[in-house]
């Protein structure tokens, strides 16, 4: 550095300044510190309820109600989890939730791929108007249509079945929107090249468009899973037998048994959340890529 400076004083001085700037002066460090502090506070706000649920699931009911509240269980009771699993029949409810969620996710992904492709690549009359109509369905809360949906499900004869639990959610405006945008990001030349190579719409969709839209499809899968897994109102209305109850209904029944078992309810909540956490961990990369897809020219 010194030798260089002796030979080339001008450029070296300039590059030293650049290097200092790049490494970051004190103000940059303070800004970075502030940013991390803010993110840490936000993380605490998000994670605290989950932490308290875990803590409460390991306490005796009397300790949960005591003041001041306990934040660090000194004698954790892990048997609450096995109690929740066995006495609350959580295994059965989780299975039901899995079945219904997989039907819904599969249906939503399939219908979103097909409709998204049609809106992105095909030419047909009233395309724009129909797309706006699809989007408009996002603005109608589910509660508004719940009675009509229930009537339809009953008249179709699928009340109190897995099909009845899943039917109203097999297509989703948001999914169609998400995949249409993803497909629009595929260069038109690829479509043209495939047409010349001998591929029609169907084969282009599955061989080219879907593989290229994978991040968006993964994101849709996660969103769809979260929404379907957390449903409460519809499963409550459309089932009458306990053997079809989903995990959210099961948790309510667990809570309803006795106030003395409130720690078991907390344990049940944590068990019900585990599949979602696993899903988010597995898909987190795709989820972020899906959310930011198209934001930057790739």
């Amino acid at each position: 550095m010194t030798a260089d400076a002796a030979i080339l004083p001008g450029p070296v001085t300039a590059s030293t300044e650049v290097a200092t700037r790049r490494r970051g002066g004190p103000s940059r460090r303070v800004r970075l510190l502030g940013r991390y502090l803010l993110l840490s506070v936000l993380a605490v706000i998000v994670l605290f309820p989950i932490y308290i649920t875990v803590v409460n699931s390991l306490l005796r009911p009397a300790q949960i109600a005591s003041q001041p509240p306990t934040f660090f269980p000194t004698h954790p009771i892990f048997s609450t989890y096995s109690d929740a699993w066995s006495s609350g029949h959580l295994g059965h409810y989780l299975f039901n939730s899995f079945v219904v969620t997989i039907i819904i996710v599969g249906g939503q992904v399939l219908t979103s791929i097909l409709a998204g492709y049609a809106f992105a690549f095909l030419k047909f009359p009233f395309k724009r108007a129909l797309f706006v109509l699809f989007l408009a369905t996002l603005m109608i809360p589910f509660e508004v249509t719940v009675v009509q949906n229930l009537t339809t499900v009953v008249s179709l004869g699928i009340y109190n079945t897995y099909a009845g639990l899943a039917a109203p959610f097999l297509a989703w405006g948001l999914g169609v929107f998400l995949l249409r945008q993803a497909f629009l990001g595929i260069p038109r030349d690829l479509d043209d090249a495939a047409a010349l190579d001998g591929y029609g719409n169907w084969r282009f969709l599955w061989r080219v468009a879907v593989p290229l839209a994978r991040p968006s499809i993964a994101a849709l899968t996660v969103f769809s899973f979260l929404t379907a897994w957390n449903q409460y109102l519809w499963p409550l209305l459309v089932t009458k037998d306990e053997h079809l109850s989903t995990v959210q209904i099961g948790l309510r029944q667990l809570r309803g048994t006795s106030l003395e078992n409130v720690n078991i309810t907390f344990a049940g909540v944590i068990i019900a959340v585990v599949p979602l956490v696993v899903l988010l961990v597995v898909f987190q990369k795709q989820l972020i890529r899906g959310l930011t897809a198209g934001a930057v020219k790739g």
Partner: peptide, 14 residues
């Protein structure tokens, strides 16, 4: 297009 038996090279290479 697929029945015309022509091949195309695109500007973007596609």
């Amino acid at each position: 297009a697929k029945d015309r038996d022509v091949a195309m090279v695109f500007q973007s290479y596609a």
